[in-house]
Design a protein around this nucleic acid. Structure first.
Lengths: 129, 129
DNA sequence: TTGATTGCAAACTATTTGCAGAAAG
DNA sequence: CTTTCTGCAAATAGTTTGCAATCAA
């Protein structure tokens, strides 16, 4: 449970998530990393993403949609997700305190608050026409 | 694509989601429905939930976590999700207009906004001690 | 050295699909 | 009747796990 080791694989996974300014899924990270390390396994990518998120070096996005996504940008922000293609982009939202501040709700000890906007991204708007 | 038929199976699925004041997953709905219709198949439950959501008779929750959840309560509200057990409860949140109102964001045509609180539910708090 | 990590393959979980027969309208 | 729906079984998609070999500290 203790010693986290920064292996070559984990370093590459981290770098790729950071420079992908998209919010890649594990599969997408795998494809990116594979260009530099063809022999890495998908399982290692999953385990690396998990371990890096646990270290707080990247963020695992807790949002709707089927697949999990990862974000190398640790600055606090919210997201818009395209309901058609699943693409996720950052948005700056002024969160008024009565929304943002974690508090007791229904007996839950609240630790976080996520705002997710849903919509149609520019590309899908174009495709739709 | 057109004619929706209210079959016996769909009626039971709808009733069970409505009276379960939890926010059941497809598997949970299957278990509930099976008590009244032992021969129903899981595939039918999935297809019924999908069809009923498409009719607007229940709501498919777009939120974090592994499994999809369904909500028979059509009144607008937000949710708290337990990060340990996945349980979801309703919360009333006053959404200030600058947060709630769909608008253009990053070129997206925004159609909705979800707020999800994350935390630890009372039961898991007790277990943790 | 020694516990943590990797690659591989197999296992799992949640969900979807093809199809022939059954039922709704 | 005709079209939609159901049950079953098989197929997918995404993610996780067991294990022996390998590597970081």
């Amino acid at each position: 449970m203790a010693g986290f080791r920064m292996t070559k694989q984990r370093r590459v996974v981290l770098e790729e998530v950071q420079k992908a300014h998209s919010h890649p899924t594990a599969g997408q990270v795998y494809e990116l990393v594979r260009r530099r390390m063809p022999r890495i396994s998908l399982a290692t990518v999953y385990r690396s993403l998990e371990a890096l998120a646990e270290q707080g070096m990247l963020r695992k996005l807790e949002m709707g949609g089927t697949q999990r996504r990862f974000d190398g940008d640790l600055y606090v922000h919210q997201h818009v997700r395209c309901v058609l293609c699943g693409r996720v982009e950052n948005v700056e939202v002024e969160l008024p305190p009565q929304v943002a501040v974690p508090e007791q709700k229904r007996g839950f000890e609240v630790t976080g608050c996520t705002i997710e906007y849903l919509g149609v991204c520019p590309e899908c708007q174009a495709d739709g026409q």
